[in-house]
């Protein structure tokens, strides 16, 4: 399997599924609709994962058959600041019955915020065809679609992760190459305008974990929530394309997205990379790394001084 590229592998999987499954097969593109999920609840080649932020929402009702992924333990390394290791991730996917020909769908609460981050983690680990349920948990609930409270158990597989795709991840050094080295890359800061402008160090209710306010020089601001409709679904590709073009992001150059800890920006990464097909990396160190780094240039329009009385 490792000889095939992830895309080929999934394509091959899709063809295999098409061969003997009567249920609807994977929708084209990175998003699936609630109706599609409903039609595929019993399709054993589809595996749904919930990645939510609020504790207990999965257990009190999830899409039937969905497997829970705790973002703060399952998808990260709990000791060092990093995403989950390939070894641990592979073990979880095996336990969830994922195989080479499985179509993976993620969904979650808060406009798929952490589900999109999950998609980025899946993608880094070589599963680039993972899909998001458009509208996430919110739309599913609002449409009154069925929920289940039992935890599903699947027959474990011998699944092996394809080669990882580390190019989706930007590191501090990559960002500094842009800021100081003049690399032709566009930076997108998806935090709120007040964080971007340096008026505040962290959003309401979140600890101030960086000791400088502002943004990475040259970054443009696009608050992540602007990419979704009122009902939680993503705006159309045309609308998104126009909205980003209006701030100079048109895909002609590689892009790096970032936020405070790299989670919200995964949502924008998903929009730019998976929906619009641009070349995008997510900088998961984000402002809590950059804004704390010694000697790096910072743009702080508001001029807020940390610790000043």
């Amino acid at each position: 399997m490792t000889a095939l590229t992830p895309r080929l592998a999934t394509l091959a999987g899709a063809i295999v599924i098409a061969g003997f499954s009567t249920a609807a097969i994977a929708q084209e593109g990175p998003l699936v609709t609630a109706d599609w999920v409903l039609d595929n609840l019993n399709n054993e080649n589809v595996r749904i994962f919930e990645v939510s932020t609020d504790v207990g929402v999965y257990e009190r009702g999830h899409i039937p058959g969905a497997v829970n992924l705790h973002w703060h333990t399952d998808l990260v390394d709990t000791v060092r600041r990093d995403i989950v290791s390939a070894e641990n991730f592979e073990a979880q996917l095996r336990e969830a019955g994922v195989d080479e020909d499985t179509t993976i769908v993620l969904y979650g609460d808060n406009n798929n915020w952490f589900a999109a981050w999950g998609a980025w983690v899946f993608d880094i680990h070589g599963l680039g065809e993972v899909k998001l349920l458009d509208g996430g948990r919110k739309l599913w609930e609002e449409q009154g679609l069925p929920l289940d409270t039992a935890t599903p158990e699947y027959v474990a597989t011998e699944f092996a992760l394809p080669e990882s795709n580390t190019q989706l991840r930007a590191r501090l050094s990559d960002v500094l190459e842009v800021v100081e080295g003049g690399a032709e890359v566009q930076l997108v800061d998806i935090r709120s305008p007040r964080e971007y402008n340096g008026e505040i160090f962290a959003p309401e209710g979140v600890q101030e974990l960086s000791i400088r306010a502002g943004h990475i020089p040259g970054a443009v601001n696009f608050p992540w929530g602007n990419a979704v409709n009122e009902d939680g679904t993503f705006k159309s590709a045309d609308e998104l394309k126009a909205a980003f073009a209006a701030i100079g992001i048109d895909g002609s150059q590689p892009i790096i997205t970032y936020c405070r800890i790299g989670e919200r920006s995964s949502h924008t990464w998903f929009v730019l990379s998976r929906i619009l097909g641009y070349d995008v990396r997510n900088y998961d160190g984000s402002w809590t790394e950059y804004g704390n780094s010694v000697g790096v240039p910072i743009a702080n329009p508001a001029g807020t001084v940390w610790g000043a009385l």
């Binding site: 504790v55 207990g56 999965y58 257990e59 333990t73 409270t149 039992a150 935890t151 158990e153």
Partner: peptide
């Protein structure tokens, strides 16, 4: 009965939610 559905095996590193 609820735990049995939500956390089928009481694995050491997990607690039932909330």
């Amino acid at each position: 009965a609820i735990f049995g559905a939500w956390l089928p095996t009481p694995a050491i590193e997990r607690l039932p939610p909330t």
